[in-house]
């Protein structure tokens, strides 16, 4: 066991864990942040997607010892009030079915919108290719990302 200091959702946490422990299990077991989901353990389903310094990463393949000082953002920290444009769009369009994959979908989509605020269908296909949805809500995930892009644009106009 070793002690690691992690920056998660804007807070500093000290955790005791074996160095090879995937960040996924540190988040879920040590920090009670269970929004990040386990699906495959080998980076094939992306239910565990978090951001490391804003870049999407598979928490199941990221050893806690490799996180270092990177800022970790999980679904719980995507927005302070659950009102990220993607979260609003997901509720407005009733995207989820079982909902298990949706935190990972949202984190991948948030990283996409952060650098491409108006993605095309092809951009969405590329950015979201890693995320499985077993309920196959892809139709609404695509619509949800386009809707969030509209909300983002509207928000920018309001502020301007």
């Amino acid at each position: 066991m070793s002690t690691f200091t992690l920056q998660v959702n804007g807070r500093s946490h000290e955790v005791d864990a074996a160095p090879e422990t995937p960040l996924l299990w540190v988040l879920r077991d040590n920090l009670d942040l269970v929004g990040t989901k386990f699906g495959c353990g080998i980076g094939q389903c992306a239910a565990c997607t978090v951001h490391l310094d804003g870049t999407p990463a598979r928490a199941c393949l990221t050893p806690v010892s490799a996180v270092g000082s990177a800022k970790v953002t999980t679904i719980e920290g995507l927005s302070p009030d659950g009102q990220h444009p993607l979260q609003r769009a997901w509720c407005e369009l009733d995207v989820a079915q079982c909902g298990y994959c949706q935190p990972g979908q949202l984190m991948s989509a948030a990283a996409l919108l952060a650098h491409n605020p108006s993605p095309s269908d092809a951009d969405i296909d590329e950015a979201m290719a890693g995320n499985l949805c077993r309920c196959a809500t892809y139709f609404r995930i695509r619509a949800g990302i386009h809707r969030a892009a509209e909300l983002l644009a509207a928000g920018r106009e309001t502020r301007a």
Binding site: V34, T74, Q87, C91, G99, P103
Partner: peptide
């Protein structure tokens, strides 16, 4: 068309599922 009652909890990663129970 009515949105799922758990949608706000789903999109914020709340502990809803069996695997999340402690």
């Amino acid at each position: 068309r009515i949105g799922g009652v758990d949608n706000p909890r789903v999109v914020t990663g709340q502990p809803l599922f069996g695997i999340d129970q402690k």
